[in-house]
């Protein structure tokens, strides 16, 4: 027994020497410093793979959007490389159709996920492009950066968002995309319908009227497929003038503190619509009372 033990252990010892693979010890050190969110935002499959690329010198630590600046500086110091440029990017939702403004065309009663709903006749939302509001993005976000507001529309916390892209993949309507955090002018709509038809589906739909394009710097906004589209190459020229005359509030200014700001015209239109709805509700209630 003892001989067998010594024999086998010497084989193991030999194998350990013979089959040893050298690994740069810095990979382990760098990996320890990374956040271990394994979110994939850097473009590599997990933190370990990113650490290997860092040590190989193919990327700079700044490419990790989750690590703090101190952490990035530490890694850069350890490896003796530059920290690299850090562009803060965030996920942006191209829909403003909360349940306060969008009509419903059917009542969906199945599995309560957006993807499930979208596979059953596109869900119940009146706008075929719009957000279904069943929280798939919130569930997919590994950083708790997405919350649902009172109108069942997701809100992205710019500080927490690392642009990992989990929500981009999760949304069955493809409403999320990753953008530079400084892109403040934003079209919160994907509806390709013509004006009247789009308005029928959602009060906050882009009707393709082109007022924003006229008020903005030349070439910044273009109308294609009945929808305003921003040329992000010219985003430097953007200012709040573009949103002021939008009749529906589809084009917004994403303020860091206040959230999406809609133009004066849209505010007016929303107030009118709310007043009308209240009036109709009151009339309906009165009629009901009369019949009773």
């Amino acid at each position: 027994m003892a001989v067998l033990g010594i024999g086998l252990s010497s084989i193991l010892a030999l194998a350990n020497k013979k089959l040893h693979i050298f690994e740069d010890p810095r990979i382990e050190q760098v990996d320890d410093l990374l956040p271990h969110a394994n979110c994939g935002a850097c473009g590599f499959p997990g933190c370990r793979a990113f650490a290997e690329e860092l040590v190989a010198g193919d990327v700079t630590p700044g490419a990790c959007p989750v690590s703090s600046s101190e952490c990035v500086a530490t890694i850069a110091g350890l490896l003796g490389i530059e920290a690299g440029a850090r562009e803060k990017r965030v996920a942006r939702l191209a829909c403003a159709g909360g349940k306060n403004v969008t009509r419903m065309r059917a009542n969906y009663a199945g599995l309560s996920t957006c993807r499930g709903a979208s596979l059953v006749a596109g869900g119940g939302k009146g706008c075929p492009w719009g957000c279904l509001g069943l929280d798939d993005c919130m569930a997919a976000c590994p950083f708790d950066a997405i919350t649902m507001d009172e109108n069942e529309l997701p809100v992205v916390d710019e500080d927490k968002c690392t642009a990992c892209g989990a929500c981009v993949l999760a949304c069955p309507k493809h409403l999320f995309s990753l953008h530079d955090v400084n892109h403040r002018l934003w079209v919160a709509c994907m509806n390709n319908e013509r004006g009247a038809a789009a308005k029928k589906q959602c009060e906050a739909a882009c009707i393709g009227c082109g007022l924003c394009a006229k008020d903005a710097a030349e070439g910044l906004i273009e109308i294609t497929g009945n929808l305003a589209q921003i040329d992000f190459g010219r985003i430097e020229a953007a200012n709040m003038d573009a949103i002021q005359r939008c009749p529906t509030g589809a084009i917004v200014w994403l303020d860091k503190e206040q959230g999406p700001i809609i133009g004066a015209k849209a505010v007016e239109a929303r107030q009118k619509a709310a007043a009308k709805a209240a009036e109709e509700a009151a009339a309906a209630a009165a009629a009901k009372q009369e019949t009773a």
Binding site: A121, G122, G123, P128, N192, E193
Partner: peptide
């Protein structure tokens, strides 16, 4: 565009 059975346009 027209609404089709899958719910898309």
């Amino acid at each position: 565009l027209a609404l089709i059975a899958s719910g898309s346009m």
